[in-house]
Design a protein around this nucleic acid. Structure first.
Lengths: 333, 333
DNA sequence: TTGTAAGCGTTATCAT
DNA sequence: ATGATAACGCTTACAA
C-alpha cells in the first residue's frame, strides 16, 4: 500500500503538501494540486485511518453498545445507526454485552482505546460504569431507548406516555371498555409511562385497566402467551389487549388462537413497535409505531454535535410515536 | 489518557520494557515486571489500539459485510460473528451495502485503511470487486452463505443439497406425494441445490416436485404468499409445501389460513432456517435448521487461520443442517 | 535482562 | 504557497 511519502516523492512535493491537498485545509497552488492528485490516482493511494486517527485523536469511528443483536429492536438500531454514521464519514463498531457488565466494560474499553468519536448506548448492563466513562474520558455519549435514567446524559427517547395514550384512545374509540395490558418489566420507567398513558386515555372513556387486568411481562414472546393465559383464565370478559411490544402481542395472539378465541371478532389485540412480523402474521397486527429510523438519525446527530457544543451533552430529544391499524383489532359489539 | 511514556517514567524503565511486560514477548525480570504493572494500575493505563495497529499492521479488527441488517439471517450472522471475533481479542465493524456496489466499495476501502485483519462477506453486490480486493491486498477473506461462487475464496457454507433432502425425506415419510416448493431466486446456486436435494429425496417415494408445483420466490414473506396463491389456485391437490426459507413459509401459511385451508390438516408447510418467528406463529413451523452459530464460528476461525497458513485461503468448510418438527406438518391421510 | 533509536503514516507548527 | 520537523503511541531490531 502506497503511503503519503510515495505520493510526495512521485509528485515532487513534501508530505505536508500532500496532506494539504487531501484535507483542503489551506490553499494549494493549482498546478501542484494537480500533480499531487495525479500521483494519488497513479499509486491508488488511500490515507491510512489508523495513522490519521492516532494523530488527530479522532478515529472516525462510532461505537454502538447493545445487549443483543438477533432482536428486531436492536437490529433496527444497528441498521439505521450504521446508515447515519456512514453518511457522516465514520464507521460503526458494534458491541453486544449480553447483559454482562464485564463484557460491556471491556467493550467500552476497546472503544476508548480506538479513539472513537462517540458511543451510543441502547440498554446498559451497568449504569454507574457508563456514567464513570462519561465523566472520566469526556467521550461524547448518547443514550437511546432510555438506556440510562440520569439527567446528565444526552438522550433520544420515544414519547412513551403518548404511545400508551394512542393505544388507549384507539381502543376506547373502538368501543372497548374491558381492556387488558401486558406490560414490559415495570422497573423500567418507560413501561410505567406507557401504562400511565394508556390509563389516561381509557379514563376518558370511563374504562380502565384494572389492577387484575395488567400482566407484567418481559418483552419476550413467551411472556405474552403466559400473560394472555393468566388474564383470560381469570377474566374471560376482556375484549381487548394492548401489549407493550409486538413480540408479546404475538404471544397473546398465539394463546387466543390456540384457545378458540377469534381475533378480532372475540378479542382485539394491539402491539407496539411495528416490527416486520406485525404484517406477516394472521391476522396482521394493529400496532403503535416506533420510528426507529428517526430515533437513530437524531442520536447520531446529537452525538456528533457534542464535539463542538457542550450544551448538547445533556440534551434530550423526544420522538413522537404513530400507529397503524391492521386486522387484529375491530369495533367492540 | 496515560501513555506508555508515562508508565515508563513512573516505573523507571524504558518504553520497550513496558511493551515487553504488556505483550509477554520476551522474559522480563520479576522485579521490574512488578514495578511496571504497578505503574500501569496506578495510571489506569490502556494501550492505544490505533498506535498498536499502525505499527504492527494489525488493527485487531474484523470487517463484516452484509446487504442489510434488519433481517433474521444477517442479524444472526452479526451476533455470532461478533461473539467469535471478541473471543479472539478483536472487534467487529459492520457494513451494510444495501446491494449498492459503490457503498460496498467504499466500505471495503475503509476497512483496508484501518488495517483490518480480515473481512467476512455474506452476500456481495459486486463479485469482481471482492476478487480484486483479495488479489491486490492479500487481506484474508472468508465468504459465508455462498456469497461468492469462485473457487479461489475460502468459504463456510451449509450443505444445501442435504437441506433439501431432509425436507423431502421428512415429507415423503409423512405420506405426502403431491409436494410443492417455493424456492429462492434460482440464479442463486444454493437455491438450485436445495431443490435438487428435495427432488432427490422425493424420487425415492415416487413423488416429485413437478415443474408446475415450483414457484420461484425471492426469500421475502410476500413471495411466499404469492407463491401459495399461484400454486394452490392451479393445483388444489397439493398436500405439502416446502419453502426455502421461513419467511416465505410464513407467507405460504398466511395465504392458506386466509383461504380457509387448515394447517396441517389440509396442507403441511415446512420452512428453512429456524428463525425465532418459527416458534411464534400459530401453528408453529416445522423447519430445516441452519446452524448460524456454527457457521460463524467456523468463519472467524478460518479467517484468522489465514494469517499463518496460506492453504486455508481457499479452504471450504461445509456445515450439515438439521431439522425440527413442530405443528405445521402432519401425516398425509 | 534492559535501553536506544528508528519507524508505522499521518497532522500541525514553524519557518521560508 | 511550500518544506522541515516534531509529534501521536506503540513495536522491534540492534546494542549493551
Amino acid at each position: 500500500m502506497a503511503s503519503m511519502k510515495d505520493v510526495a516523492r512521485l509528485a515532487c512535493v513534501s508530505e505536508s503538501t500532500v496532506s494539504r491537498v487531501l484535507n483542503q485545509s489551506v490553499p494549494v497552488d493549482e498546478d501542484t494540486r494537480r500533480r499531487v492528485e495525479d500521483a494519488i490516482k497513479r499509486l491508488n493511494y488511500r490515507p491510512n485511518l489508523l495513522a490519521k486517527g492516532l494523530r488527530s485523536r479522532s478515529g472516525k469511528l462510532i461505537g454502538l453498545v447493545v445487549p443483543e443483536i438477533v432482536h428486531h429492536t436492536f437490529a433496527s438500531f444497528i441498521q439505521f445507526i450504521e446508515e447515519s454514521v456512514v453518511a457522516r464519514g465514520c464507521s460503526l463498531i458494534v458491541g453486544n454485552h449480553k447483559n454482562n457488565p464485564d463484557l460491556e466494560e471491556s467493550f467500552i474499553d476497546d472503544l476508548i482505546r480506538r479513539n472513537v468519536d462517540g458511543i451510543i448506548f441502547s440498554r446498559v448492563s451497568d449504569e454507574s460504569r457508563v456514567m464513570r466513562l462519561i465523566n472520566e474520558t469526556g467521550i461524547p455519549v448518547v443514550v437511546i431507548d432510555r438506556a440510562v435514567e440520569k439527567e446528565e446524559v444526552a438522550s433520544v427517547v420515544l414519547d412513551n406516555h403518548q404511545a400508551g395514550f394512542l393505544a388507549g384512545d384507539y381502543l376506547g374509540k373502538g368501543g372497548h371498555r374491558k381492556i387488558a395490558c401486558v406490560t414490559g418489566p415495570l422497573k423500567i420507567s418507560l413501561c410505567r409511562e406507557r401504562l400511565t398513558g394508556l390509563n389516561e386515555a381509557l379514563t376518558r372513556f370511563q374504562a380502565g385497566v384494572a389492577q387484575d387486568w395488567t400482566y407484567e411481562g418481559d418483552f419476550k414472546f413467551e411472556s405474552g402467551y403466559l400473560g394472555a393465559q393468566k388474564l383470560f383464565s381469570a377474566h374471560p370478559e376482556i375484549t381487548a389487549v394492548w401489549a407493550q411490544n409486538d413480540l408479546m402481542a404475538v404471544g397473546v395472539m398465539k394463546y387466543l388462537l390456540e384457545n378458540g378465541r377469534s381475533i378480532p371478532r372475540d378479542v382485539s389485540v394491539m402491539g407496539m413497535d411495528d416490527i416486520s412480523l406485525a404484517r406477516m402474521i394472521t391476522p396482521s397486527l394493529t400496532t403503535v409505531i416506533q420510528p426507529f429510523s428517526e430515533i437513530c438519525e437524531e442520536a447520531v446527530d446529537l452525538l456528533l454535535r457534542q464535539k463542538n457544543n457542550d450544551g448538547s451533552r445533556t440534551e434530550k430529544v423526544v420522538i413522537k410515536p404513530d400507529f397503524v391499524v391492521r386486522e387484529s383489532t375491530a369495533f367492540c359489539s
